[in-house]
Design a binder for these strands. Structure first.
Lengths: 253, 253
DNA sequence: CGGTCCGTTGACGGGAATCAAGGAAGGTGG
DNA sequence: CCACCTTCCTTGATTCCCGTCAACGGACCG
């Protein structure tokens, strides 16, 4: 897993709250410099985890939220039957652990897919801050709501019955998020396995493998193990909506 | 849509915040009687909508959260292609509109499936209250997080590749929620159409129709139009996990 | 009473799951 | 450094579930 991906990006490791994904949730609320310092000092608590490590497990008591500083995580839920479902992949700047707010216990497990650096935000500390900083609470609500919307768009993706559409949407979404990180949007390095992708999309691994091959044959992608080169973003975009032909009305009521 | 379902339940219409689903989010935080009165008076704003009416539409500016007092809603999201995806059905005591917190605009539309009474909680008013009532903010976070977890379980449902499992899970979940409303858990009256159910589960109508017939043949249900009688809850439970046989490992990484 | 939408059923075909096998990569221990 | 093993990924053959197309009865509504 610690293969050909770029060596540790020091500049990324040094990013403080100022450059963090969480910041957008503070600044618009009119947080001043002093308040930002306070926030920054609260999240100093960082840790680095190796591939395969667990940030938290389903059922663990809740005591902190986490922000990915570098690397990638996946969140997985396991139901009574032992069947697993991948809920999401989390890139730098994205938050993890929000589902634990509901019942004071994590509803999913977070596993590290490649060496990652994580910011830990102890919730007790966060509560103190929200009491002092007006607007931070509102921003916190915004974050959680945003996570819910992300989950909804996952539902929309799985609502497509063509597996190819699902994979196309997944790749496009990943590309967009890479763009937000100022990475090359046409050169994706997938930290997750084909199994993870398949499970995330609700198909089997063979289907994902075949679809990669098909997309390669169509000249949309070039696939080489973990590296996906998007040759035709336009075609990829077309494949996201109704696999090439008529619209699926999706009539309801 | 306003067919054989029970006539308007007056006792239900009279329920105040005390008996409302939202209350559980206030009480544990140690809200006292006076505070409860204040909260109650803020949500006095109720409205009744007829079947087919829209509570809000995708894109509408956010200004309130809503709680279903009686009746049923569905939330639907429409993507760029015009394809629709049903995100959920909302029974009395359940909250709607939380997805608008993220971007100050509703990300989905809420349609009324049968005559419904809705409590409106103007967000401006809610913000005032949260400033005054300690703990209410925490409870609000809890609500939103809970909605996210609900969305996650929808993902888990759609992750099952057997359509029968999905329908079984849907029915069991609906039965459980009926139980929470002190309704008969074996006698479901479905306010939503087969199209809605199909779309919600990511299958086509014909599949839902056939599955109802099959489940009836298996002696699990009795189906009569909108009325579903669960004859064998135990069998229904079995059908939720791995359609009858081996476990689907769902291995991932 | 005609129109429209809803729900069911049948026939058919396609797309994806299943079963099976083999190669490539990565990690470990000798 | 190589042998060995495990895991990952791919490809092929086959099966079958479910989506598609089509037709029809029933409910609801103007």
């Amino acid at each position: 897993m610690t293969q050909a991906s770029a060596p540790i990006d020091l500049s990324q490791l040094r990013r403080s709250c100022r450059a963090c994904g969480l910041l957008e949730l503070c600044l618009p609320a009119g947080i001043d410099q002093a308040e930002l310092e306070r926030l920054d000092s609260s999240v100093r608590d960082k840790r680095t985890l190796e591939s395969g490590g667990m940030l938290f497990r389903q059922g663990d008591p809740f005591h902190a939220l986490y922000v990915v500083r570098s690397g990638t995580l996946k969140t997985v839920v396991q139901d009574a039957d032992g069947a697993q479902q991948v809920l999401g992949f989390h890139l730098p700047g994205e938050i993890v652990g929000v589902d634990a707010l509901a019942h004071d216990a994590h509803q999913s497990s977070a596993e590290v897919l490649e060496r990652s650096s994580i910011c830990e935000l102890p919730y007790s500390r966060l509560e103190e801050l929200t009491a002092q900083i007006p607007g931070l609470q509102r921003q916190l609500l915004r974050i959680v709501s945003r996570e819910m919307v992300a989950e909804q768009s996952h539902v929309v993706t799985m609502g497509r019955q063509q597996a190819q559409e699902r994979l196309a949407i997944f790749l496009r979404s990943l590309s967009e998020r890479y763009g937000r990180l100022a990475r090359d949007t046409t050169h994706l390095i997938l930290p997750m396995s084909r199994y993870d992708i398949a499970n995330y999309l609700g198909v089997v691994v063979e289907t994902v493998s075949r679809l990669f091959t098909r997309m390669e044959d169509l000249g949309v992608l070039r696939v080489s193990r973990k590296v996906i080169h998007i040759l035709r973003p336009d075609l990829l975009g077309e494949m996201c909506g109704a696999g090439g032909a008529r619209e699926r009305a999706g009539r309801a009521s």
